[in-house]
Amino acid sequence: MPGGGPEMDDYMETLKDEEDALWENVECNRHMLSRYINPAKLTPYLRQCKVIDEQDEDEVLNAPMLPSKINRAGRLLDILHTKGQRGYVVFLESLEFYYPELYKLVTGKEPTRRFSTIVVEEGHEGLTHFLMNEVIKLQQQMKAKDLQRCELLARLRQLEDEKKQMTLTRVELLTFQERYYKMKEERDSYNDELVKVKDDNYNLAMRYAQLSEEKNMAVMRSRDLQLEIDQLKHRLNKMEEECKLERNQSLKLKNDIENRPKKEQVLELERENEMLKTKNQELQSIIQAGKRSLPDSDKAILDILEHDRKEALEDRQELVNRIYNLQEEARQAEELRDKYLEEKEDLELKCSTLGKDCEMYKHRMNTVMLQLEEVERERDQAFHSRDEAQTQYSQCLIEKDKYRKQIRELEEKNDEMRIEMVRREACIVNLESKLRRLSKDSNNLDQSLPRNLPVTIISQDFGDASPRTNGQEADDSSTSEESPEDSKYFLPYHPPQRRMNLKGIQLQRAKS
């Protein structure tokens, strides 16, 4: 015994090295194993092979420090690593049964499904019991997946119906949107047309105001020219009257000059006056001389005659003075006559000038009245044309509004008919989907599995289990394997941990 101590140590070291070499393959693929292994699927088989106990299973599945599946799978690998070579062998058998691809990844061999460990530990009855539990578990999982698949199909059909409904609603909204954009385009076109009409109206108003201003300026210029013409006519008439007055005065002077006595007659009258003065002096001298030589009687007679002569001279002087006064009065009367005649001529000139001015103003008033009548006639014609244009424009607008209203009513009726057609199509689609759903539900009910399987069917299934373990590994792997896509769409199922009653199965096998 003492001599065998070193050999035992060498043997233990060799086993430990082999164990480390075995687990080295697992550690190399630890990331892939932790990512894809579900500990809840492996722990029943590991407990059946007595590699882990209930406490280890509870620690792996329910520990609060292991929230994710990767953490739980890593903890399970750590626990199996502590179990040595047996933990490695049982772990590979569980991978061979549940995850053939991972088994091939770790060992590089094809899975054979021999279950040597569980046969050694529990015997064939334990293997049968384990396989029966796994089959029931798989059936329950398949039923749950079928239910989930039916629910998802129903949800899918519902979503398809909602999608069709949303599509129809979208078509309806597109119809309304198209109608909205069309009405918006019509409104924009009408606004552009309105702005264009306003611009045209403004341009016409500006043109009309400009023409009116030009016409008023032309009328004012015409009036100024007419006033200048009238003033020139007035000056012409005044000059004609002055010329006529000057002509009359010149004719009067000419007549006075023609009626003036001649120079010879004046000289002859002056000679006669001198001769008479000479004779008068001679007679006076004779009379003076006679007075001195005459007697007293003759002197008395001469005195009487002288007195008579003096009286006659006085009378004559009075007559001469009277004649002079009369001549002066006649001259003054002639001057007054000439003055009055001049005033008369001036008044006649003024009267004729005023008459011509009156005629001029009368003509001017007639011209202004004619212009006013023409302006009123043009204004009435413009008003009439404007009223006709406004009436025609309003009539066109009324007809346009009428046609637009008819078009809008027809478009609304068309839209309502399209919407009604879309709604009826939606109703038809809904009815078809309901009919299809009812038909599929009836087919699913016919094809669904019963909840409680008979014992004979279970025994028959387990009677055929042994050949399947040898020759149909691919079928078992397809039913027991969970793909990543299934984990996305289906909830994980945790079967209840219970042991099955095998009395009925044993009785059935005894009868057979």
Rank of each mutant, 00 (worst) to 15 (best):
L77Y: 02
E54K: 10
K143R: 14
L77A: 01
S116W: 06
L131M: 05
W23F: 01
V60Y: 00
I136C: 02
T14A: 10
L77H: 00
D146S: 11
A21G: 07
S116V: 00
G123Y: 15
P64C: 14
G5N: 12
T128W: 14
L77V: 07
S116K: 09
V90F: 15
T14E: 07
N133S: 13
V90C: 09
L46D: 07
G84Q: 09
D53C: 09
F91D: 00
D10C: 11
N71E: 04
V89M: 13
K41I: 02
V51C: 09
T117L: 05
K50I: 14
L15I: 14
R47G: 08
M132A: 05
Q141L: 14
D10S: 11
Y98T: 15
R75N: 05
M142F: 14
Q140G: 10
L131W: 01
K69C: 03
G4K: 10
L61E: 06
Q140T: 08
R72C: 02
L76P: 04
D9L: 12
Y11H: 14
D17V: 12
E24Q: 07
M65I: 05
E24R: 05
R113G: 15
N62I: 05
E54I: 10
E27P: 00
L102K: 12
I79K: 01
L102R: 00
E134P: 06
A40H: 04
P6A: 12
C49K: 15
S34Y: 02
R35H: 08
F91V: 02
E93V: 11
Y36I: 12
G126T: 15
T14N: 07
P67A: 11
L61N: 05
D53H: 15
R72M: 02
V90Y: 15
T82N: 05
S34E: 01
V106A: 07
T112M: 13
K104I: 00
G123I: 15
C28S: 09
G126S: 13
T82R: 07
L95S: 00
I118W: 15
R35M: 04
M8V: 14
Y45G: 11
K137L: 10
L92F: 05
G126F: 14
H81Q: 11
R72D: 04
A73T: 09
E24N: 02
I52P: 12
D20S: 08
K69S: 04
L15W: 11
N25H: 03
F115N: 15
L127S: 13
K16V: 09
R75K: 07
R72H: 04
K143S: 11
K145D: 07
M12D: 13
K137H: 06
N133V: 07
D20C: 08
L61C: 14
Q55A: 11
M65G: 01
N25R: 07
K145L: 11
M32F: 03
P64Y: 09
E18V: 15
I70V: 14
D17Q: 08
N29G: 00
G123R: 15
E18R: 11
N71I: 09
V89A: 10
D10V: 11
P111E: 15
N133W: 14
C28I: 06
G84Y: 02
D146P: 08
M142G: 09
K143V: 11
V106Q: 05
D58H: 02
I118L: 04
Y98G: 03
E19C: 08
Y36A: 13
N25P: 14
G108W: 06
I118Q: 14
A40M: 07
G74C: 05
T112Y: 14
V135M: 09
L33R: 01
L127P: 07
Q48S: 11
Q141K: 12
M12T: 10
N71M: 07
R35Y: 06
E121H: 07
T82D: 08
K41L: 01
D56F: 06
T43C: 03
A21S: 13
R35G: 04
S116M: 02
H31D: 08
A63W: 00
Q85W: 06
A63G: 09
T14D: 14
L61Q: 06
F115V: 15
E110H: 00
N62C: 03
P111W: 00
F91Y: 06
D17E: 10
T112S: 12
M12G: 11
N71Q: 09
R35C: 03
G87V: 03
M65K: 03
F91M: 13
E19P: 09
T128M: 15
N25C: 09
A63D: 06
L77G: 05
E122V: 05
T128H: 15
M8S: 12
E122A: 05
M32L: 04
E134Q: 12
V119L: 02
V51F: 04
M32T: 08
F115I: 15
L95E: 01
E13P: 13
D17S: 13
M8R: 12
K41N: 11
M12S: 14
V51Q: 08
I37R: 04
L15G: 10
E27D: 07
K104Y: 01
N62E: 12
E125G: 13
V60M: 09
E13Y: 13
I37H: 04
T43P: 09
A63R: 06
K16I: 14
N38A: 07
N29T: 02
Y103P: 00
G4Q: 10
V90K: 15
I79R: 02
N38M: 05
D9R: 11
K137S: 09
G126M: 15
D56N: 11
Q48R: 08
S94Y: 09
D20V: 11
K137V: 05
G108T: 01
Y45R: 06
A63C: 08
N25G: 07
Q141V: 09
G84L: 04
P44K: 07
H129Y: 04
M32P: 04
Q141E: 09
E59H: 11
K16G: 10
E27F: 10
L127D: 03
Y36C: 14
P67K: 08
E134S: 13
S68G: 05
M132K: 09
E59Q: 01
M8C: 09
V26I: 15
E19H: 10
F130Q: 13
P39Q: 02
V119A: 14
K143T: 10
L95H: 13
E18Y: 05
